[in-house]
Structures are given as C-alpha cells and as structure tokens.
C-alpha cells in the first residue's frame, strides 16, 4: 500500500518534470519563443494587409502614408493596459492641440473575434476623436501585426473566457511611412509629446 503510494508520487513528480521541460521548450525554442529582439517594424509601404476602420471604410497601410502616424495594438476587452494607453494617447493629442490633426492615430485590435466594427466604433468613441479603430479578418490582423513586428496571443481565463497578451508599445512613423521610434507603455508624458513632435518635424524636413 505504502509502496504504491510512493510509486504514485514518483509518477506525479516525473509528470510534473516533463511538463516543466515542455513549458521550457515551448517558451525558449518552441512556437512560444520570442521573436529575436531588435526587430523593427518594416516601412508602411512594404506592409500588406486590408482592414476596416470603425466607420466601415476599407483601410490598409497605404491609408497611412502621407502623414505621420501613431499605431497601437490592443483589444476592447482589455481592462488595464488598453484604456490606459488610449487615454494617454488622448492626453498627448490634447497637448498637441491643432498639430494633432496632422497625425494618423490608429488602434488596431488583436481580438477580431470580439471586436467587430461596431464594438470598435463604440469603444474609440470614448477617447480622443482623432483615434481610429481598425479591425478585420483574423489573418489580415496577423499580417498587420507581422509588419509592425507586434506580437499577441490568446490566454485562456477561468470560465472558458480568454484574454490576450500583446505588444503595448505605440509605434511612430514619419509621413513617408518609415518607422521612427516607439513610445513604450507608461513612458512619462514629458517624453512622449516631444517624441511625437520630433517625428512630425522629421517629416516636415524630409518633404
């Protein structure tokens, strides 16, 4: 009886160890492996995807070329990071005042399953009017994220629900569609607004 119990424990331990090895492999070498660090978004003109904005217009990377652009990936069921980033962006746009009208500001969902055009329209409506919400087919979202070198994946939560982990940096592009820099999550506003202004100026000098 006792021996059987010991055997049982042994099997459980081996099982746990195997699971840990698998998880380790998944995260380091397997499909869960992080993209090599330092990968930067490709130029907008080299990207290829087709989405729909919150006003039901067909949009793509070409829509953004011609003006400096700010892009953020997220989802509307996100309780903390996304509303915080969108309200930060709204604050930066308020600070920029009229200058903000020269910018494309796009929030691309990584949760097309739940974020329909209607859901995006309702959600972005609560933030700065300059912010556009883009959604579309799963594979088109994947193509967009790939161009920006943004990552996202679903994580199941209790009760059959899911949340998503995702790149939360804000990407800045000049008017020609070249990547300039990112504003990382929670960067103080005193750094963010000058960064945006530099991006806009860079464009002015180039064109």
């Amino acid at each position: 009886m006792r021996r059987r119990r010991i055997l049982g424990y042994g099997a459980a331990c081996i099982g746990a160890a195997a699971l840990m090895l698998f998880v380790g492999w998944w995260q380091v070498d397997g499909p869960g492996a992080p993209e090599p660090a330092g990968q930067l978004p490709i130029p907008l003109s080299a990207m290829d995807f087709s989405l729909t904005d919150h006003k039901d217009n067909k949009v793509g990377p070409g829509t953004l070329v011609g003006r400096p652009t700010m892009v953020f990936f997220g989802f509307t069921h996100c309780p903390d990071v996304c509303p915080t980033t969108l309200s930060d962006i709204s604050g930066w746009l308020d600070d920029l005042g009229q200058e903000a009208e020269e910018l494309n500001v796009v929030f691309i969902t990584v949760d097309p399953e739940r974020d329909t055009v209607k859901a995006m329209a309702e959600y972005v409506g609560y933030f700065h009017p300059g912010i556009r919400g883009w959604t579309g087919e799963e594979e088109e979202i994947a193509k967009a994220a790939n161009g920006f070198r943004a990552r996202y994946w679903q994580v199941p939560t209790e009760g059959g629900d899911y949340t998503l982990n995702h790149t939360s940096s804000v990407f800045l592009f000049d008017a020609e569609g070249h990547f300039v820099s990112t504003i990382d999550y929670h960067e103080p506003r005193e750094f963010a607004v000058p960064k945006i202004q530099r991006t806009m100026k860079e464009t002015g000098e180039a064109s």
């Binding site: 992080p34 993209e35 660090a37 903390d80 990071v81 990552r151 994580v155 949340t163 982990n165 995702h166 790149t167 939360s168 940096s169 990112t182 990382d184 999550y185 929670h186």
Partner: peptide
C-alpha cells in the same frame, strides 16, 4: 510588460 514590449496580466 517585458523587454520586448509585450504586456500580460
């Protein structure tokens, strides 16, 4: 938020 800029909860 990790070094690659991915946020999780």
């Amino acid at each position: 938020t990790n070094a690659e800029g991915v946020s999780s909860m």
